[in-house]
């Protein structure tokens, strides 16, 4: 019995160390798959030949799905890293347009991740980025209810005030417009 009491923590610590050691590998795989996916996505957008376009599309979907898997591993093995969350969110957004029939399921999952990322960044330097991602995912999730949309609107206002100048800040203005429009729709339906 006594021996077991010593062995258990040692095994646990060893397992944690192994998992922590795997994290950089998952991150590298996640980034690699994401970059390949994005390249294939831009080839797909530009291609006019239907057959070749389809090949690029499949390649993009395959790599971006791989990026999702690897990012999940990063989030599990190294929850302190922002990169796992960000690759997951970025890959989900592109997949929602590419794998159109499953668009909303990618966004639903991305919304859950964005909520975790927002909580993780609260009170930290990247709080505005967390707010931006949360608002963006809510704006693109059709199932989001009035409460979520209102929460997202407050988040995007925060992002607009606190993000550094750049594309995310520019997009935040569009996200705000979408959220205001959707909240107005809820109000009109109620009336």
């Amino acid at each position: 019995m006594k021996r077991n009491r010593f062995i258990c923590p040692i095994v646990l610590i060893t397992l944690l160390l192994i998992l922590a050691g795997c994290s950089p590998l998952y991150l590298m795989r996640s980034q690699g798959a994401y970059e390949r996916g994005v390249q294939a996505y831009y080839w797909y957008l530009k291609e006019s030949d239907a057959t070749i376009k389809e090949v690029y599309k499949e390649k993009a979907i395959e790599n971006l799905k791989k990026a999702l898997e690897e990012s999940e591993s990063v989030m599990k093995t190294d929850p302190t890293s922002d990169k796992g969350y960000l690759f997951y969110l970025k890959a989900s957004i592109i997949l929602s347009g590419l794998d159109y029939d499953n668009s909303q399921s990618y966004i639903e999952d991305a919304f859950t991740v964005s909520r975790a990322f927002r909580l993780k960044t609260m009170g930290q330097k990247k709080e505005a980025l967390g707010a931006y991602w949360f608002a963006k995912c809510a704006a693109g999730w059709e199932e989001a209810d009035r409460r979520i949309l209102s929460e997202a609107l407050a988040a995007v206002e925060y992002a607009l005030e606190n993000l550094d100048p750049g594309p995310e800040k520019a997009e935040s203005a569009s996200v705000r417009q979408i959220l205001e429009f959707r909240i107005l729709q809820f109000q009109l339906e109620k009336e």
Binding site: Q31, Y34, E35, V38, Y42, F87, K90, I93, I94, S96, G97, Y100, S103, Q104, I107, K136, A139, G140, W141, E142, P167, E168, A170, E171, S174, V175, Q177, I178, E180, F181, R182
Partner: peptide, 22 residues
């Protein structure tokens, strides 16, 4: 910034439809 950040952020289909509808 890494290569992945060399593009402008992409929208989801629903975001595109909602924005244009507004």
């Amino acid at each position: 910034k890494p290569f992945a950040d060399l593009q402008f952020p992409e929208p989801t289909p629903a975001m595109v439809f909602y924005l244009i509808e507004s």
